[in-house]
């Protein structure tokens, strides 16, 4: 019998632990030529803001060894266009829709959450308090326990939807932020957003990216992301969504074993648009080979290090 891959992230139930990472999968419609969205655990939208954002000046992408540095700057059509033009399409696919939101102020997060509250077809809200590519809001909120808790608490009061909070990579301090967000009422935590990064054109002696700096994603950050997930897993009881450089089932299993209940795939989709489906199949095969019937048997199953 095929193993049961379903998971619960608090009140949010998914039939597969593999979802897309916000910002790498648009609003789902862009990839329908390549995969059946109903095979995914969830579709997490590009982060939306109250007003449309045009994003940062190009170039917005720079490839590095096994990595990608981006400085998109939360380019998105804004809440109104999302609800009118993007959500209706997603609602018709049989897949839970997680809407990623970001605000310049705590009140903007609340307003977004309220607007989504009464809307059919939304399974959960993911608060992005970790974008490195915007000046206001974003990462500023996620960098300190007090502000991270404030945002979480205010969104919690504004919506009854399951609330995921996406954290930035912090060294040190992530455990404190995670703990504060848990206490403030989040249902699950997403770890991690991109790592602050920079690429320099040595001929011109200028930054390659139009915005100067950006965020690193892809296989280059995977060991760092696994470490962060493992660390947060020891600090909170909330379910975690692990991400950062996942390209194969084995990569995804590292996060699950470290303590994540689900995983998200971002940059890998650009190289292989079917990566998420293949990863899901690979996880099932891994469980089956070991005679495990349920994904739960692998989550947080890390054994002590050293020789066996």
């Amino acid at each position: 019998m095929a193993p049961d891959l379903s998971v619960s992230l608090g009140p949010l139930r998914l039939k597969s632990p593999v979802m897309c990472a916000s910002g790498t999968f648009g609003f789902g419609e862009e990839y329908t030529d390549y995969l059946d969205l109903s095979q995914l655990g969830a579709v997490v939208t590009k982060t939306i803001t109250l007003q449309p954002r045009e994003g940062n000046p190009p170039p917005r992408l720079a490839e590095t060894p096994a990595g990608l540095v981006n400085s998109i700057g939360l380019a998105n059509p804004g809440l109104e266009v999302f609800l009118r033009e993007k959500l209706p399409f997603l609602r018709r696919r049989r897949v839970p829709v997680v809407v990623s939101i970001a605000g310049n102020t705590v009140e903007e997060y609340a307003e977004l959450a309220r607007a989504l509250e009464g809307t059919a077809g939304i399974a959960a809200v993911e608060a992005n308090i970790s974008c490195p590519n915007v000046k206001e809001g974003g990462r500023l909120f996620g960098s300190r326990p007090a502000t991270a808790a404030d945002v979480t608490r205010v969104i919690r009061r504004s919506t009854s939807l399951p609330l995921l909070v996406k954290l930035p990579p912090l060294f040190p301090g992530l455990m404190e932020v995670a703990g504060a967000v848990e206490e403030a009422g989040a249902d699950a935590l997403a770890v991690t957003n991109t790592l602050p990064a920079m690429v320099i054109d040595v001929q011109a002696r200028r930054p390659v990216l139009g915005a100067g700096t950006g965020g690193l994603s892809g296989p280059a950050i995977r060991p760092v992301a696994v470490y962060l997930v493992w660390q947060v897993a020891t600090a909170v009881r909330l379910p975690l969504i692990g991400m950062g450089g996942i390209a194969t089932a084995s990569d995804a299993l590292e996060f699950l074993i470290a303590g994540a209940s689900a995983v998200a795939v971002g940059t890998a989709t650009f190289g292989n648009p079917r990566a998420m489906v293949e990863i899901s199949t690979g996880i099932a095969a891994y469980l089956e080979e070991r005679g495990m019937s349920n994904l739960r048997e692998i989550i947080g199953s890390l054994r002590p290090g050293g020789c066996s």
Binding site: G23, T24, F25, G26, E30, Y31, D33, K46, G55, R60, L61, L68, N70, I72, A75, N76, T267, T269, F270, P273
Partner: peptide, 9 residues
């Protein structure tokens, strides 16, 4: 990156 309008890159 994506080539399909998903990443805004």
């Amino acid at each position: 990156a994506c080539g399909v309008g998903a990443c805004q890159g």
